[in-house]
Amino acid sequence: MAKPKSTMRRKETMYGYIFVMPWIIGFLAFTAGPLLFSLFASFTNYNITSQMDFVGAENYQGLFTEDGLFWTSLWNTLYYVLFSVPLTTMGAIFLSALLNQDVPGIRVFRTLYYLPAVLSGVGVYLLWMQLLDPGTGMINLILGWVGIDGPNWLFDPAWTKPSLIFMKLWSVGGAMLLYLASMQGVSKTLYEAAAIDGANTFRQFFHITLPMITPVIFFDVVTSLIGGFQIFQEAYVMSSNGEGGPANSLLFYNLYMWRQAFENFNMGYAMAMSWILFIIVFILTMINLKLAPRWVHYEGGDNR
């Protein structure tokens, strides 16, 4: 009995590898190579065209000890991640809980709330620049109706990052769809049983819905954390000259890295920056993975 089982296993393993082969080949050819190259070049003064001399840890040392803008950009990015990840996650869950109700016309609402996620890129940023315009924008106009003197949004360093987070909240539809799908998969019998035991809607939400969708929450938190650290376009488009102003309040990590790479041609320096970011994101993701078993609930068994 034992022998056929093991050949079966081996075959399955092989199938598995064969199926993931396109990805592995792609990874080795297009990702691993550049990745290793950038690790190596981060220890050089590489400038793409004329020089590539080994300089040891000089780039890293310079970043940590001499470069104030490095810290500014890191702080801006952390601020953004710290607020945008929890807020968009909660926003998406809240929205999907609302849209999970059985009311007439719910499909229309689902479509409406999903629509912003379909729009993407520069068009949306330009739209928001108009909406957020302090003098003529719609947001301050509406705030004015209820007696609030709206802030200067993208012109006030204290409000630039909140503006972007606000904009991100508008497009939580993408994550909402995942939560919605997952909520619809929660067995009705659980709610019925809870209702018989006398649990009200809130308790049902916190004790049934939330635990049942934790795998999706986990996925969303991990991906949006990584995405959050990569914020670039928003600042590039929405600050004047793409410089990250006013007062460097939108100078995000990747924007500063881009500037070093493609304006100063300090490619080695920029590569060192990218490795620091990689390590930060890697550590945070590992922490996430380690913490996951404590709060993520997987149905159907062995906790994996």
Binding site: L69, P246, N248
Partner: peptide
């Protein structure tokens, strides 16, 4: 990119 160090101060 020295203007990147000047502009924020003037802002």
């Amino acid at each position: 990119d020295f203007m990147g160090s000047v502009n924020p101060k003037i802002d």
